[in-house]
């Protein structure tokens, strides 16, 4: 029987064959025009996402390596700076010490020179004083004696005065 009746279980060959033909047509059309595009789009997206994830993981690994390298360099820099500071301190102390030693030596030298100059000045002053005192003594003596004293007498008297003064100084 080709046609259906009111019985829903009645089988009809016409819709049966139509179903096969229509579905086969739909499946072929969808298989050619629809599913390849959809599945390719989904695969492209999947590939893109996986690629992005892989790239992100690679970037993260690279960043971690760079961070480690940076931390290592930072550590080295800190150690180097500490060493440099330590060396600079040592050098500064050494230079300070050297400067102080040099200053002290310089100061001592200056003091020595000043003492020598003082001594020299004192000797000069004493000599001048002695000479002046002798001259004065001679002048006084001349007035007292009221007579002229020759150069030889003057020299002899000066020497005698000096000897007398030196004897008194002792």
């Amino acid at each position: 029987m080709l046609l259906a009746s009111a019985n829903p279980l009645e089988f009809n060959l016409f819709p049966f064959i139509t179903t096969i033909v229509v579905f086969a047509t739909v499946a072929i059309a969808l298989g050619v025009f629809v599913w390849p595009k959809i599945l390719k789009g989904l695969d492209d997206r999947n590939t893109k996402i996986l690629g992005e994830i892989a790239a992100a993981e690679a970037s993260r690994a690279s960043a971690a390596a760079k961070q480690k390298e940076f931390e290592q360099k930072l550590q080295e820099a800190m150690e180097q700076s500490s060493r440099m500071i330590r060396e600079a301190k040592t050098e500064a102390i050494r230079m300070g010490e050297e400067l102080r030693t040099r200053s002290e030596a310089d100061l001592a030298e200056r003091a020595r020179r000043a003492q020598e100059e003082i001594e020299s000045a004192r000797r000069t002053a004493v000599a001048e004083l002695e000479e002046h005192a002798a001259t004065l003594a001679v002048a006084i003596a001349s007035r007292i004696l009221k007579r002229e004293i020759s150069a030889a007498d003057q020299k002899r008297m000066v020497e005698e005065s000096l000897a007398g003064m030196q004897g008194q100084g002792r």
């Binding site: 259906a4 009809n12 229509v22 739909v26 025009f33 629809v34 595009k37 390719k40 989904l42």
Partner: peptide, 26 residues
């Protein structure tokens, strides 16, 4: 039979809708 026309109509509608969806997903 009514089911045959419905099937053909459904097939056409399905093709149009899925073709549109495919363009937007591609």
């Amino acid at each position: 039979m009514l089911s045959m026309v419905t099937m053909v109509t459904a097939a056409i509608v399905l093709l149009i809708l899925l073709r549109f969806a495919a363009k937007s997903i591609a």
